[in-house]
Nucleic acid binder design. Structure first.
Lengths: 156, 156, 156, 156
DNA sequence: TTTT
DNA sequence: TTTT
């Protein structure tokens, strides 16, 4: 039985284009880096900003939609759950990562998409985008491997 | 201006007693490790369980309440926001941590508390509990230091 | 395309046993009345309590589970969406109702259930419970008819 | 003690300009009508749309901000709680209303505002807007009086 | 890295 | 009444 609730709700903007990969079985896995910024007053009364960069992962059909419609700068609503992973880096050191596994997404219309929150994309050749380019410089807060997903790695 | 929404909602059980510390200025900072468990069927049709251990932090008045009323096993509702931190470990290696900064809490009545969801506690001497014991076996996924908080380190 | 987010999250206690009915096609529709209580200080500094009674509706499989496991007094987490309906009462007057259409539920262990948050129920004969008794004193804020559901009336 | 969680999260568009009133004590009360639209397939496989119109109320400082920056068509994130009220209409009949009492709001940039999610408004004379005109034709799903608020009617 |  |  499931015990407990693990729910995340985010509204933010993408720091980069989505990164879509496919499992051996053909399931899409799309990752985005999503910014949310909050403000607080420090003790001197100055506005202090702080931006969190969330690693959000979309699986399956949602991964295809996210990879197709989201772009750098897009404003998006995401709902999902927290997943913490532990892995051994290439340097042999144990590392931790935190991901939000999305189970709902909605575009919100803003810079980076064609506007309008979810309509047809303005791009002409979306299909061959996914796996060609070395779009690998995502300096995400926490780095974790993603190349070795098995087909049943969809988390729900 | 704040841009974006960064919201976490958790219902889970504490893996250990809370850990309360105080800043130089006397502000309470309480940390708990909160478990949520989800299930999914793997490809063989077997129920697969997975437990996430969330690091939740309560500041100020909420930190005092959490430290006073929560106990190992307590069932609790927490609302807060995600905060990702980067720090250098004692081994000189850069590490990352993820915390949920709580801004709302509600006890839910269950094992570990006196029952009743937020009623008076049954314990008699809560005060001298905080910093004595080597309660270090917290099953927290990711470990981060917490001793060096300044007084204005409250995140909102 | 869906536009917008319509999400409700409740943790509360049932004011009565659930009320389960079935459509002609055999789909379960279970209604509960769920209390949440908040406090605020009035201008004289006195604690003022206020209880909201939410009408929550579960369809299909979730309706069966809710009807089977929930009882008066049960503590439950509910996630769903708001639905406003307009109907003509038996007195010929137009009326409005507000329901939360649940799409997730989790028992939280407390008075009214067998404890344990979702475990097997203690009852022996759950089946013939549904439609016998005149359980009509539901403290529901707003009353609406529910007998005439068609089979495709499931709202998602 | 508060018992339970009563939380609503909405992202939608305003059907009309906000309606701001002031209590005798000068507290702003702003009401908006917010649309969210969902889709589902009916049994014939056709896409069925359904729009909910939420009555959202902002008190105090938030009421001033909402009245100032939101406009018909604005896209907005709202977080709040459900409140059900019962009142006697001018026709002597008892009526019910449901409101979402907002405690957080964030503009999302879209038609109806100057774009950009919360920036300075483009309007030139916002000040005398609030109380003059007979903007009374809001056919909100459920109608309730709002003229007779006392100063301590702020709900938290 | 985004956005305002 | 909004929006796409």
């Amino acid at each position: 039985m499931a015990r407990g609730i693990n729910k995340v709700i985010l509204v933010g903007n993408l720091g980069n284009d989505p990164d879509t990969k496919y499992t051996q079985g053909g399931m899409a896995i799309t990752r985005i880096s999503l910014a949310t910024t909050s403000v607080r007053k420090d003790k001197d009364g100055n506005q202090q900003e702080r931006t969190e960069w969330h690693r959000v992962v979309f699986f399956g059909k949602l991964g295809e939609i996210a990879g197709e419609y989201l772009r750098k700068g897009s404003s998006v609503y995401v709902e999902g759950s927290l997943r913490y992973d532990k892995y051994t880096g290439q340097d042999g050191v144990e590392k931790y990562s935190t991901d939000i596994i999305a189970d709902e997404m909605q575009m919100l219309g803003g810079k980076g998409d064609g506007g309008g929150g979810g309509d047809r994309p303005q791009r002409s050749a979306p299909a061959q985008r996914q796996d060609s380019a070395p779009r690998r410089q995502q300096p995400a807060t926490q780095q974790a491997p993603m190349d070795d997903f098995a087909d049943d790695d969809i988390p729900f």
